[in-house]
Amino acid sequence: MRLHPLPAFADNYIWTLADESGAALIVDPGDAAPVFDAARDGLRPAAVLLTHHHPDHIGGVRDLLRKWPQLPVIGPQDERIPYQTDVVAEGDTVAVAGWRFEVLEIPGHTLSHVAFHGHGLLFCGDTLFSLGCGRLFEGSPAQMRASLTKLAALPPETRVCCGHEYTVNNGRFACVVEPGNPALRRRIEEARTMRERGLPTLPSTLADELAANPFLRVDAPEVRCSLRERLGREPADAVEAFAELRRWKDGFSS
């Protein structure tokens, strides 16, 4: 099993998961060009998995199908996603080219967002980032909080394959929220070193995120203290705590 993120645009990753023969799943190809480059090096696309409808995650599908017209394209029910051959929902299993993934519905960033979990991997699009989470473009704070809670319940060794290289920037905000967290400091130092070497900071592990990602730690004492100081009172519940944390991040400038 070879897992590799193909950089695209300014900070996207197109994830590829290949077997020994080169047959590969392609996850969220916002641009076809990196996939074509990988194909020249022996990658053979076997199926496309889509997590949500945003153009930087689906924009390359049309060109991929021009080259490989029989390529299965699998994603959530959403009329904004063209070219799909298979529509999936919560509890479905994707079985293609020897790979098997469970489908999880994780609304929040978009209403139809899904994730694919299997083989110790989580392809979570723009819902969970390393040290962060996605903006709420369509869903509610309660929906996103529930989606993150669902992902947090997966095995801690799960490798988190998200859609963007945001770790260092997310870390700046996380340090303001929870400055006394040593796991967070270690993760930021590691991420900075990797970026200086031109390496991706991903995948992280779910254990890493549970230890350092403030959006999975809204009940941690220091996170609650920061939110209490910001609100001037105790958050009513975890949903309000999450909502205020997301609002804070939306307006944050390092």
Rank of each mutant, 00 (worst) to 15 (best):
R2V: 13
L6I: 12
P7T: 00
A8T: 02
I14S: 06
I14K: 03
L17P: 09
D19Q: 01
E20H: 15
S21T: 07
S21E: 13
S21P: 03
G22S: 05
A24S: 14
A24H: 09
L25I: 15
P29A: 01
P29E: 03
D31V: 15
D31S: 14
A33L: 04
A33V: 14
P34G: 02
G42D: 07
R44P: 13
L50E: 12
H54L: 09
P55L: 09
P55M: 04
D56N: 07
H57Y: 15
V61Q: 01
V61S: 03
V61L: 00
D63I: 01
D63E: 13
R66L: 11
P69G: 07
Q70S: 14
Q70R: 15
P72T: 07
P72S: 08
I74C: 04
G75F: 05
I81A: 02
Y83R: 12
D86C: 13
V88A: 02
V88H: 07
A89Y: 09
V94P: 01
V94E: 01
A95K: 01
A97N: 06
R100M: 07
V103S: 00
P107D: 08
G108H: 14
G108A: 02
G108R: 03
V114Y: 06
H117D: 10
G118I: 00
G118N: 08
H119S: 06
H119L: 07
G120E: 11
G120T: 08
L121D: 12
L121Y: 11
L122P: 05
F123V: 09
C124T: 04
D126V: 00
L128Y: 00
L128E: 04
C133D: 12
G134H: 02
R135I: 04
R135N: 11
E138P: 06
G139V: 00
S140I: 04
Q143S: 08
Q143W: 00
A146F: 00
A153D: 10
A153G: 11
P155F: 10
E157D: 05
E157F: 06
E157M: 02
T158M: 06
R159K: 06
V160P: 13
C161D: 09
C162W: 11
H164F: 06
H164Q: 12
H164N: 12
E165Q: 07
T167I: 03
N170K: 10
G171N: 15
A174H: 04
C175H: 05
C175M: 15
V177F: 02
P179A: 05
N181C: 12
A183P: 04
A183M: 08
A183D: 09
R185V: 02
E189A: 15
A191Y: 06
R192P: 14
T193D: 11
M194G: 02
R195T: 08
G198S: 09
L199S: 08
L206H: 07
D208V: 10
N213S: 13
N213H: 12
N213K: 15
F215D: 10
R217M: 05
V223H: 03
V223Y: 04
S226H: 15
S226K: 09
E229S: 14
L231W: 13
G232V: 04
G232M: 10
E234S: 12
A236T: 08
D237T: 08
D237V: 15
V239L: 09
E240Q: 13
F242H: 00
F242A: 03
E244Y: 04
R246E: 10
W248T: 03
S253M: 15
S253K: 14
S254I: 15
